[in-house]
Amino acid sequence: MVGLNRSYPEANVPQYLNESGRAMLAAGQTDCLHDAALAHPFLNAAELEAWPGSVTDNSELSKVVHMASPLFREGAPTTPVLLYHAIADEFAPIGAARALAGKYCAAGTPVQRAENPIGEHGTEAAAGLPAALTYLTDRFAGKPAPSTC
Rank of each mutant, 00 (worst) to 15 (best):
A127E: 06
F42N: 15
T109I: 00
A92H: 11
E90C: 06
E115M: 02
A86V: 02
K103C: 09
P77A: 03
C105W: 03
Q15W: 07
K63T: 08
G53H: 07
R22W: 00
T109L: 04
M67C: 02
A125I: 13
S69G: 03
T123W: 04
F91Y: 13
T109G: 07
N116M: 13
A114W: 03
E60A: 12
G122I: 00
H66M: 13
N58A: 05
A114K: 06
L83V: 12
R113M: 15
A131H: 07
T78K: 14
D89V: 00
P117V: 01
A37Q: 10
P80Q: 03
N116R: 12
E115Y: 11
P70M: 09
N116G: 06
A11W: 14
L38D: 02
A88V: 08
P93T: 04
E124L: 04
A36R: 08
G102V: 02
E19R: 10
L100V: 05
L43F: 04
L25F: 00
P117C: 07
T123Y: 07
L61Y: 14
G128H: 01
I118R: 09
L83N: 02
Q29M: 08
L33F: 11
A99S: 14
M24N: 14
P14C: 05
P93A: 07
G21I: 01
T56W: 11
E115D: 14
L83T: 02
A107V: 11
A88N: 14
A96I: 10
A23P: 07
P41Q: 09
G75F: 05
G119M: 05
A132E: 12
P110N: 01
N58C: 10
G119S: 08
P117A: 05
P117N: 09
A50V: 08
Y16F: 15
A23M: 07
G102E: 14
E120Q: 15
I94A: 15
A88D: 14
A11F: 14
P110I: 00
G28S: 13
